[in-house]
Design a protein around this nucleic acid. Structure first.
Lengths: 199, 199
DNA sequence: GCCATTGCCTAACAAATGTTAGACAAATGT
DNA sequence: ACATTTGTCTAACATTTGTTAGGCAATGGC
């Protein structure tokens, strides 16, 4: 059954799964829900995937890959820390806005993974966080950023840039780049008005 | 069956429910899980609550109450906007750290509410967000805060202060006040180092 | 023209789910 | 002393769940 525009049935299933997992949560989404949305029977999904959890794994780890690859790329390109952070934020926001459903699953449904994938996933997430820690440390060395509690700062940054996932609508007035810029400004400069421009 | 230290069985059930809902999610927590943790049978819970969802409702709306009451209080006391924001953040962090389990449920499990409670809950959450919008608007009038996109700023602030719920451990080195102060500083001032102190 | 593969189907399964009915014992009030 | 309330139990229910087995039609290579 040739699918439109060479998107394979496997990918199609993953996409619909991500959509439903975001909408109702992984546990609350049944294989029959999924099948109905695809216009097939639940059992048919098992021709493509060997379990419900395999779907979750695919989504979570594919997204983890994307995020980590992005962050590594940013840290490999040699810029100053502020540019790095802005780039990392931009990539992050782009990845989320371009893969809203999968990102949601990556961000909130991974806890339904069971061991050993659960532990593995947490490692990958840690790796991603580490890339941000590196950027902040760079910024400190370059005397651009304040000497902040880095773990604290990284988590604050990530929580801020992740939250867009809960309100971003593609029809909205801001595109990914604009959001990323606003977020970067907010994270760098905070709310408070300045009497003198910095740097 | 007199419970230790006048905490009623009803409260006990709610507490254990919150703990499990946080741990495994509302959907993945069965009434039998809950009962086992309480040392009773699943059917016995129905003497105290008429459904599983009633437990979720109780937790979500009780917490909504707490948050809103706090925020209103802050806005009623007449201080300048920066103080208001710091106070609001402090109350928020305190509420989360003092009610970790229930806060988790409030923050992530409310989507399992069904109508009409679902809509009602979203209204309450909106009310809470509005209190922050008011503070930001005050700050602008007082020329303390930048003229930011307020909806954007409020969501950023809330996402930042909510995220502590995912890593805060009572045994950790920071207490609620310290966390609140750090968060406030971060939100007000951002990461970037300043050449001249503001204000 | 045949055979293997692909992709789906129907039917069924055991297990787990939320919930109800009804019984029983202890505590409480009068 | 009796009646009621309180809090739990056992047993059962209908439904939903993830998953498997086996079959059937279309497709594509040779």
């Amino acid at each position: 059954m040739a699918e439109i525009l060479n998107i394979s049935r496997k990918e199609q299933i993953v996409n619909v799964a991500a959509k439903l997992f975001k909408q109702k949560g992984f546990v609350a989404t049944s294989m029959r829900d999924l099948a109905a949305e695809l216009g097939i029977e639940a059992a048919s999904i098992y021709y493509h995937f060997k379990s419900k959890e395999e779907l979750l794994e695919k989504i979570c780890f594919d997204m983890a890959d994307k995020f980590i690859t992005n962050a590594r790329e940013v840290n490999d390109i040699y810029f100053n820390a502020e540019e790095k952070l802005r780039m990392a934020i931009k990539f992050h926001v782009e990845t989320i806005t371009e893969n809203q459903n999968q990102s949601s699953v990556f961000l909130s449904e991974w806890r339904n993974l069971s061991e050993p994938k659960f532990a593995l996933f947490k490692q990958l997430r840690q790796q991603y966080e580490n890339q941000f820690t590196i950027i902040l440390a760079d910024g400190e060395k370059e005397d651009i950023f304040d000497d902040v509690d880095k773990k604290f700062a990284v988590l604050s940054i990530l929580s801020t840039i992740n939250f867009i996932n809960e309100w971003y609508k593609p029809e909205g007035k801001m595109n990914a780049s604009e959001i990323a810029e606003k977020l970067s400004n907010f994270i760098m400069g905070g709310l408070r008005k300045r009497l003198v421009t910095d740097r």
